[in-house]
């Protein structure tokens, strides 16, 4: 089936959801602009990122202006607006300055405005031009350089990230940090440990930390591993453990809204407890009540614990759900 030809004048997607602003839950509009795509994806990109496909090679300023206008058409004065680009909002090759300024003008009335950027586009000049209600989401993913480089192929170092975060901090802007749970080639235990270390590293300078369990996207290195049974997305138990232990009194908000939660490609457990646990995680993301994450149980909790011991004992990061399966057992 031929893929539907996508117009550069159309938004990639737009929806409404709840998020938090100034300590309370508010209506939020999410806009995904169709841009020429992430600069890093053209140099190989991150192992888990499939957002290459959410971009077109040629998108002009006028196209982007048209996309912004159609977002405005559906805007109902939500206090919080998030503008995603599948790349970096502050990359002028992706979002030309006039488009950036137009976006700020159109959404100047919001209480909170969030977009994402790689650290190389965050500097004193760009930040000086940002309105005060801006939060910049940074994909730190891991505070471990080896993992950033070899497991994620992120293309920047922890120091690069820290410098960008400092610039935003100095400018008094909000920072939402993304922590990736279980990049490829990590065992579940190492993944949990790394996510917790990353949360501890980023907490002092984060407004919020969003824990993103890896979901297997099309056309990625991770997908190739997953198809060969050499990768399993994290368990929901792991996500809960990371959120529970990563959260600190007086620390940043810890949140997670997993893509593909409960599916084979996303964070998942045995299938019977998944939805309840994901709901608990969602509640916690808003109310920050650690009690939401506690007291859950399911038969698969023991499986999760044994699988983690087995992975370590076998020295492997492959998917043991499938790796230990033997259809010929008598």
């Amino acid at each position: 089936m031929a893929r539907e030809k996508r117009s550069p004048r159309e938004l990639e997607a737009l929806w409404k959801e709840k998020d938090m602003s100034q300590g309370r839950t508010v209506d939020t509009m999410v806009v995904i602009l169709r841009t020429r795509g992430c600069c890093w994806s053209k140099k190989g990109g991150c192992h888990m990122c499939g957002y290459n496909s959410a971009s077109s090679p040629v998108v002009s300023s006028e196209d982007l202006m048209a996309q912004l206008q159609s977002a405005m058409d559906r805007y109902q004065n939500e206090p919080f607006v998030k503008i995603y680009t599948s790349g970096s909002f502050l990359d002028e090759q992706e979002i030309p300055l006039d488009v950036r300024d137009e976006a700020f003008r159109l959404f100047s009335g919001t209480e909170r405005l969030l977009f994402e950027s790689r650290p190389e586009f965050v500097n004193r000049e760009t930040v000086a031009g940002l309105p005060g209600q801006v939060t910049v989401a940074l994909g730190l993913e891991s505070a471990n350089d080896t993992i950033l480089q070899e497991s994620i192929h992120k293309g920047f170092s922890v120091a690069d990230h820290r410098r960008a975060a400092q610039v935003l901090q100095d400018a008094g802007l909000g920072i939402r940090n993304y922590v990736l749970l279980k990049p490829p080639y990590l065992s579940e235990r190492i993944a949990i440990r790394d996510a917790l270390e990353t949360i501890r590293f980023a907490s002092p300078y984060s407004t919020e930390i969003s824990v993103n369990p890896l979901n297997v996207q099309r056309g990625t290195v991770v997908e190739r591993l997953w198809k060969r049974a050499e990768y399993r997305p994290p368990w929901i138990w792991s996500l809960m453990k990371v959120m529970e232990e990563g959260w600190t009194e007086g620390g940043p908000r810890i949140m997670s809204s997993p893509s593909g939660g409960g599916t084979a490609r996303g964070v998942h457990n045995c299938g019977s407890c998944d939805q309840d646990l994901l709901k608990a995680i969602e509640r916690f993301s808003f109310n920050q009540d650690v009690g939401e994450l506690q007291g859950h149980d399911c038969d698969c909790r023991g499986t999760w614990e044994r699988t983690m011991e087995a992975e370590t004992a076998l020295g492997t990061s492959v998917d043991l759900d499938r790796g230990l399966k033997n259809d010929l057992a008598v």
Binding site: Y185, L186, I190, G315
Partner: peptide
Amino acid sequence: TVGVEETARWYRILGVTLRHDPLILGTKSS
């Protein structure tokens, strides 16, 4: 004997405990 300790694996042979705590567990087809 062999065993695990958190994320590490150890092997006890020839009177010495060899302990390896890996970070990146590349797979055989990496």
